[in-house]
Amino acid sequence: MAVTEAPAAAVVAVPAPDVLDPERGSLRWAGIRRRLVLGIPLGFVALLILACFVGPLVLPLHPPVGGDILNSALPPGSPSHPLGTDINGNDVLSRLLHGGQSSLLVAISVNLIGLVVGGGIGALSGYAGGWVDNVIMRVLDVFIAFPSLVLTIAIAQALGPSLPNTILALTAFSIPAVARVARSATLRIKTMPFVQAAELSGSPAWRILLRHIAPNITPQMLNFAMLGMGIVIVTEGALSFLGLGIPAPNPSWGNMIYEGQQSMSATPLLVLWPSLALLATVLSFNLLGENIRDEMSGR
């Protein structure tokens, strides 16, 4: 978001473009800067998705599983293995990209479902109030109160660890969390003048929800969802730590970190690569989320 130094107050607000004199050079710079700040993370996310989903199709990579055991634990820079191999002889770069597919898929799915379903439930509950609110909140309470660990172990053991089941297990936590945030945002918004004006003018509730509530809570929700991207990827790794999540030998960043850290003193790089990938991804999504939020709410 562009930063301009207002003369008097040190607290910075983001003025709408029409406030500034279009002839000032700073506007152009502000515009460029804004585009850059939005563009870079967006570009990186695009690059990431490209690399993980298209890369394996076009690049001459080794397969991520089924490596030759004689190539176990080769260092980076080895011939045809730019990032080396893991203890099973699989190419790390290939596993990184394929793993990215899994991790991103899980993260996107979980957050999308959470946003739509959870956000919907939460907004509904917050707006409706009364016994509707109570009932929904109590049901969600059970899930929030329930120690996630037992639920996760049970789901994974009963259904078997796999990509879809991982998504299932993680949405079970994402939805109540998003719902609660949506509800609290809605509670705040619904007492505001423009909402009450709409009510007084006789708009039906569903219309108010869609037209007034939803757009106003969306920035906060998006921000939360983007933060959630990183959390979901990391939590998938935690599931791997317990032997659940995406089953080996198929890679995900989470289980690559898990496998690597089992002998981290000896193979720190096997933890480093997926951690860096994770870091870059989370960074991009967060920046993106916040910029989108700023764009949408900056007035």
């Binding site: 003193s265 720190p268 790089l269 933890v271 480093l272 951690s275 860096l276 870091l279």
Partner: peptide
Amino acid sequence: TLTAGLVLSG
């Protein structure tokens, strides 16, 4: 920081 720590441990 993540990078330095991991590389140094190696």
